[in-house]
Write a protein that binds this DNA or RNA. Structure first.
Lengths: 339, 339
DNA sequence: CTTATTTTCGCAAACGTTTCCGTATTTTAA
DNA sequence: TTAAAATACGGAAACGTTTGCGAAAATAAG
């Protein structure tokens, strides 16, 4: 362990007191310019790196933000993380990242781990299983700045960032209707999720406005096993009264649909049109290319980080008030919805 | 700040000394079972969370592993991280994750940030720009356990995990040859990368063995701008002497190829067969489905974490010796290579 | 019953910073 | 010329934990 030099040793080398060296390095006004120069150059020469534990213990700050996501193999969340990291890195913050794998028990454990000062703030998107939010309330009550994005938790009075789920789903559904769809199904994971509810509302509104029937079997609640989902979708597509359009609330269900129709006589878009919330760059390369509702993932991440770091560094100027900030998605029309 | 209770307060509540409480919580043999029970139940009741700064300062351990990757929007790296996290979480380790965005300057800054004890170990895949490795040597000399995966740095005498790049590229190229390809191109990012070199060696060996010509223009060195890459590939495909097969060293270049041929009269696989190193789950849904060399990403991540945590917890039993451990890839043949 | 041993616990130091406070020196003001 | 103020630095405490050492109480041995 070639452990680096510490402040005391550095001070001894300079024949100065540790307090003086500390102040010099922190650019205190009570240290002369000359001394500062000497200290800084010696620190560089000896490659002095301040111990973050000691500093953290003293200051009670970790310069670290925890990010909790339900899934990593997912372009949306990956882009959000890139957005967060961009801002965080520029401000000298580090990122602890946790994947709950859509498992609320894991989510609880992770949240508990964050109660000891390891992170200065938390930004998260809840798992699809999360209905009891007591662990999140505990985190909030601890006083840790906490914000949600995408899959938000309305019970916690803090700032949340989402996209215009209702409007996008409404517009997307309307697009299918304009393309001639009469029987439109809605694919979702967990009904409990905020995004599911909002997107379903948008879908329902468009259906109702067009005077179309709303078949109960067309609201398909899927899970997290791809194989099962493909089976569920296949069952629906082979039923007596099969849909001619699909609005998918998440990317993976659109892909499951592609798998489901593969090798069958059902053709997209002729027999079945499909639009999906999705952030994959491969949408244009699918067969046929997939019409998507693309979320502003990077922007969401950036905004989360800006607000959080603002709150951490200038608590007077930033407040995590109980509000939902909406950043609109873009609908990109491709071949899966136009014949 | 409803900061939690600390050890001293907990001890006062129990009318015990802090040292006793500490030992009780750490299951020391010198504390009676009865006292341990009391302490533990009171700690739970008051939701005591040990301060990690104090502990880290005392023990000089952070229980944190830093992961440095060159790209986040990439299924391979996402899967590796999932693998690392699975093992790490089970052992109580946290993950600091950094994305270099293929930028060696960013890589250097990040590596420098890790010199102060923020992480107990580092696992990384170098950026495609990394040729000067002095920053990595400094990290290594600090005594921080360091291992590489996929894009390794051979200059550092530590353990590295890779897939069988040479053999997979050889087999993949041979597969194209068996399918009748005579003029096979190789698509790569940065020539400096370990994986590029190995995969190119495998490709070359197969070409040579089959007695095929090795056109210089068929070794296409791309960069990180998708648009440019599509242009480069398009130029190659429209040239006089165009290839009838492509081996792509990375997923993104295979996708760029799909984009390049889109809307042209070149058909895959009739006019052009393509195989690529790739870990996307969408390979089967592309048009046509893409033959892939799929890397054991999750396993690689798990093995990295197992070794690293082993080294951290039982230094006597684990050694980070200078070796390269190879975990084989799987070739999955799909429509892009069979007519 | 005395002595030796074990069990159980408390005291205090240490980890490396930052910062409150005090002090010696220099500069400014009267 | 003297008092006041500004400047530049040192000493020491504090952050919350773990652990070496010592000591009291309980038990075992003689």
């Amino acid at each position: 362990m070639a452990a680096g030099i510490n402040l005391k040793e550095l001070a001894a080398e300079l024949k100065l007191a540790p307090s003086t060296v500390s102040r010099a390095l922190n650019d205190s006004y009570e240290i002369s310019e000359e001394t500062k120069r000497k200290v800084i150059s010696m620190a560089e020469k000896l490659n002095y790196q301040p111990n973050q534990f000691a500093r953290g213990l003293r200051e009670n700050k970790s310069k670290t933000i925890a990010v909790i996501i339900p899934e990593r193999i997912n372009n949306f969340f990956a882009q959000v993380m890139d957005g967060i990291e961009e801002i965080a890195q520029a401000q000298g913050y580090h990122l602890l990242i946790y994947n709950t794998h859509e498992d609320v028990d894991r989510e609880k454990k992770i949240v508990n781990l964050l109660l000891n000062g390891r992170a200065d703030a938390v930004v998260m998107s809840v798992s699809s299983q999360t209905s009891d939010v007591s662990h999140l309330e505990k985190l909030y009550r601890q006083g840790l700045p906490l914000i949600f994005f995408d899959r938000i938790c309305s019970e916690i009075p803090t700032t949340k960032f989402i996209t215009n789920d209702y409007q996008s789903a409404y517009d997307g559904t309307k697009h299918l209707i304009q393309q001639g769809c009469k029987k439109i199904a809605f694919l979702m994971i967990s009904k409990e999720l905020s995004i599911t509810k909002e997107r379903y509302r948008g879908y329902s509104a468009a259906i109702k406005e067009a005077g179309l029937e709303k078949e109960p079997a067309f609201s398909l609640n899927c899970n997290h096993c791809d194989e099962e989902n493909i089976g569920l979708i296949r069952d629906m597509l082979w039923s007596e009264n099969r849909p001619d359009g699909i609005v998918s609330a998440v990317e993976k269900l659109a892909l499951a649909t592609y798998h489901a129709v593969k090798g069958t006589k059902i053709r997209i878009p002729e027999d079945l049109k499909i639009i999906s919330f999705a952030n994959t760059t491969m949408a244009g390369l699918l067969n046929p290319s997939l019409t998507t509702i693309t979320q502003p993932a990077i922007t969401i991440g950036q905004e989360c980080a800006k607000l959080l770091i603002g709150k951490l560094t200038k608590p007077k100027h930033y407040e995590l008030i109980d509000q939902v900030i909406t950043i609109p998605s873009k609908i990109i029309i491709r071949s899966s919805t136009v014949a």
